[in-house]
């Protein structure tokens, strides 16, 4: 079963544990600036929203890459960057409509979410359940449940 990250902004408190977990998993240090998931603080609205790659089926980054450095991971369905192939041309960062592929100047390569190979560190680290890793074909299940609950007769 293919799984996907489900992001629920209404549960996010903006603590950045996800960003630290992501950078620790991928870079070996606690470094939000290198995180592939970002939490945005909409100050005047008093809202927080985590955002990362949604692993598009027809991934624009993958199609744009001139050296085929972005490939589908058959186990997770994630679009993985092959660092050994990536030449750092950044075309994928332009192609992605959502801004979730970014260049890392330290490595000269691009970096994006790869679902940590099937056990995303951000989801494990999130203390409020704002980031969960669920059945990719039923990311709407909880919302459906909430609406279904409204339709049942009141006791």
């Amino acid at each position: 079963m293919l799984k996907a990250l489900q992001l629920e902004p209404e549960k996010c408190t903006g603590c950045l544990q996800c960003e630290m977990a992501c950078s620790f998993e991928n870079e070996g240090v606690f470094n939000p600036s290198k995180s592939r998931i970002k939490v945005f603080n909409f100050h005047d609205e008093g809202r927080f929203a985590p955002y990362t790659c949604s692993q598009c089926a027809e991934a624009w980054c993958m199609h744009a890459c001139p050296v085929e450095a972005i490939v589908i991971n058959p186990k997770t369905g994630a679009k993985d960057v092959l660092e050994s192939v990536c030449v750092g041309c950044k075309v994928c960062t332009i192609a992605c409509p959502f801004g979730t592929v970014n260049y890392n100047a330290d490595t000269g390569k691009v970096a994006k979410c790869d679902l940590c190979g099937g056990d995303p560190a951000c989801a494990s680290a999130c203390p409020t359940g704002a980031i969960t890793y669920v059945d990719a074909e039923h990311t709407g299940l909880e919302r459906m449940r909430a609406h279904a609950a409204q339709s049942i007769p009141k006791a």
Partner: peptide, 17 residues
């Protein structure tokens, strides 16, 4: 409006009003 966390805080006692 919501509660809010400081950096790394899993308690999130902050008030946004």
């Amino acid at each position: 409006v919501t509660n809010a966390a400081c950096f790394g805080c899993t308690i999130a006692c902050g008030r946004i009003s």
